[in-house]
Design a binder for these strands. Structure first.
Length: 415
RNA sequence: GCCAGGGUGGGGUAGCUGGUUAUCCUAGGGGACUGUGGAUCCCCCGACCCGGGUUCGAGUCUCGGCCCUGGCCCCA
C-alpha cells in the first residue's frame, strides 16, 4: 500500500474544522490590525533562500532542478518570499505595507513532536516602518493572534544591540559561536569558548545580560547605546498596551539580518519543540535587489499551536437529516435546499433503507430530522423532529425551516 | 546524520518461554425491522510492515530495510 511521505499528515474533516477555526481567529486578528493577506508560490528560486539563510540550508530544503535546469526549492519559510514579492511588485506602494500570510512550508528534517516536513506558518510582515511603534505593533499583533487562538504561552522580548555591543571586539565567527552558546544557556561551554579567545573577562557581563529582566539592569552592563531610546520607548508602548511579557536579552534569533528588537514565544506541553512564534526587526529587501527597507515581522508555528491547544471546541452548526421514502425523494431534495438556503447543514439520507433505519442513523449525527414519506409528499408538508427533545410536528416546509433558524443547539450528546 | 522505544483487521488491542482455524473491543456492511431513536441479538467484512536467515513449523527467535513516536543535532 502506498504511504504518505514521511513527516506529512492527512487531515480529516473534524481536524480541518479545528484548524480552520484557529486559522480564522488569527486571520481576524490580522485584519483588525489592518493587515491584508498575501500569497507567494510554493516554490521559488533556490537562491532566494540561500541569500537569506546561507548555503548550508540546502541540505534541509526540498531543493530540486526543474526540467529547464533551474535550481528551485519548496519554500522552507515565508519571510524571504514575501520580501521578494515586495521587491518585485510592491516597491512603489505607499508605506508602510501591512501584510499577513498563512501557508505551508517544507523542510527536510527529522520529524518529532511539533515538527513536520510540511508545516504551516501564520505570520505578518510590516514593511517600511522604522519606529518603536512599528516594533510594538508587530509584537502586539503576534500576541493578539496567539491570544485569539487560546494558546497559553510565554512571550519574551529582547534587543540584539546589547549583546552585540558586548561582543563588538570579536570577529564574526567567534561572535556567532558565543551567541549560540548564550542562546542555549550553555555557560560552561561559554566560559571555555571565551577562554579560547582570551576573553574570559566577558563571561560575567554576558551571563548577567542574559539574566537581566529590566532595561536598567541591561544597560548598566553595556553602557549607553544608540538604540537605548527606541528600546525604552518600545517597552513603554508594550507596557501601556497591557502586554504580558518579559524582557530577555539572551534572544539571538539565528541570522544576521535581524537588526534590533527580537521576540520569541514558548508554549507548554510541546516537548523539545516548544517555540511557537519568533520575530523581530530586520533588513532583508536589499539582499533581493531592493532598497534597504526596514521591516519587522513574525512567524507563528501553526501546527505547534494546534498541538499545544489539544482539543479545540468548534462552535456546533445545527445539522438537519432529511429522511425520505422513495415517494418523498423529490420533496426531500427540495426540503434540503430550503434548509441550506437558510444557512443550515442539511444531509440527505442516501441509504434507501427504511425510515426506522434512517432515523437510527440520524439520531447519531444530526440535531433535527425531517421525514418525508408518501403521506407528507402528498400533503405537501414535512414531519419535523427535534432529535434532542423527541418532539415531532407536521409542518409546512417554511415553518420547519423557521423552527431551526437562530436556535441554539444543545450539547451535542446525540453525536 | 545519531540515540531510544515501537509496528498484529479502518482505529484500539491480546497472543511474545516458536505448534490446529490469531483474541477481544470499536468502526463498517447486512439482518431481526417496508413509517419513527442512540438499545439488544445474529451474521458478515477485515490484520501479523517488507525481505533474508534459523526451524519439520515463525506474529513469536535472528539479521537487514522501511515506517511510526519521542529525544539529540539543527531550527531560517
Amino acid at each position: 500500500m502506498l504511504q504518505r511521505p514521511r513527516g506529512t499528515r492527512d487531515f480529516l474533516p473534524d481536524e480541518m474544522e479545528a484548524r480552520r477555526e484557529i486559522e480564522e481567529r488569527m486571520r481576524e486578528a490580522a485584519r483588525r490590525f489592518g493587515y491584508g493577506q498575501v500569497r507567494t508560490p510554493v516554490f521559488e528560486e533556490l537562491e532566494l533562500f540561500t541569500l537569506r539563510s546561507g548555503p548550508g540550508i540546502v541540505n534541509e530544503m526540498y531543493a530540486f532542478e526543474d526540467k529547464g535546469g533551474r535550481a528551485l526549492s519548496l519554500r522552507p519559510e515565508l519571510t524571504a518570499p514575501v520580501l521578494r514579492l515586495y521587491v518585485n511588485e510592491a516597491r512603489v506602494l505607499p508605506k508602510p505595507l501591512r501584510w499577513f500570510y498563512y501557508d505551508d512550508c517544507f523542510r527536510y528534517e527529522r520529524p518529532q513532536k511539533g515538527r513536520y516536513r510540511q508545516f504551516w506558518q501564520f505570520g505578518a510582515e510590516l514593511i517600511g516602518a522604522d519606529t518603536a511603534m512599528a516594533d510594538a505593533e508587530v509584537v502586539l499583533l503576534a500576541d493578539a493572534a496567539l491570544q485569539a487562538s487560546g494558546v497559553e504561552y510565554e512571550l519574551k522580548v529582547g534587543h540584539l544591540a546589547l549583546m552585540r555591543s558586548l561582543l563588538a571586539d570579536l570577529d564574526e565567527g567567534a561572535r556567532r559561536a558565543v551567541m549560540g552558546l548564550l542562546d542555549k544557556r550553555e555557560f560552561d561551554g561559554l566560559v571555555a569558548a571565551l577562554a579560547g579567545l582570551g576573553r574570559e573577562d566577558l563571561a560575567p557581563s554576558l551571563e548577567a545580560l542574559v539574566a537581566a529582566t529590566t532595561l536598567d539592569e541591561a544597560f548598566a552592563l553595556t553602557g549607553p547605546l544608540p538604540e537605548e531610546a527606541r528600546l525604552r520607548e518600545l517597552v513603554t508602548l508594550l507596557d501601556a498596551a497591557g502586554l504580558d511579557y518579559t524582557l530577555n536579552f539572551g534572544i539571538v534569533r539565528g541570522l544576521d539580518y535581524y537588526t534590533g528588537m527580537v521576540f520569541e514565544g514558548f508554549a507548554q506541553n510541546l516537548g523539545a519543540e516548544n517555540q511557537i512564534v519568533g520575530g523581530g526587526a530586520y533588513r532583508l529587501a536589499h539582499l533581493f535587489g531592493g532598497e534597504d527597507t526596514p521591516s519587522c515581522g513574525f512567524a507563528i508555528g501553526f501546527d505547534r499551536v494546534m498541538v499545544a491547544l489539544g482539543q479545540v471546541e468548534v462552535p456546533p452548526r445545527p445539522t438537519v437529516a432529511v429522511l425520505s421514502t422513495s415517494e418523498g425523494a423529490c420533496a426531500a431534495c427540495v426540503a434540503a435546499a430550503a434548509f441550506r438556503a437558510a444557512g443550515l447543514r442539511a444531509e440527505l439520507d442516501l441509504s434507501g433503507r427504511g425510515l426506522g433505519a434512517q432515523l437510527t442513523r440520524a439520531a447519531r449525527t444530526a440535531d433535527y430530522a425531517v421525514l418525508i414519506g408518501a403521506r407528507e409528499a402528498e400533503a405537501g408538508v414535512v414531519a419535523f423532529k427535534d432529535l434532542a427533545s423527541g418532539v415531532q410536528e407536521t409542518l409546512a416546509l417554511e415553518a420547519a425551516v423557521a423552527r431551526t433558524v437562530g436556535r441554539e443547539v444543545d450539547a451535542p450528546g446525540a453525536r
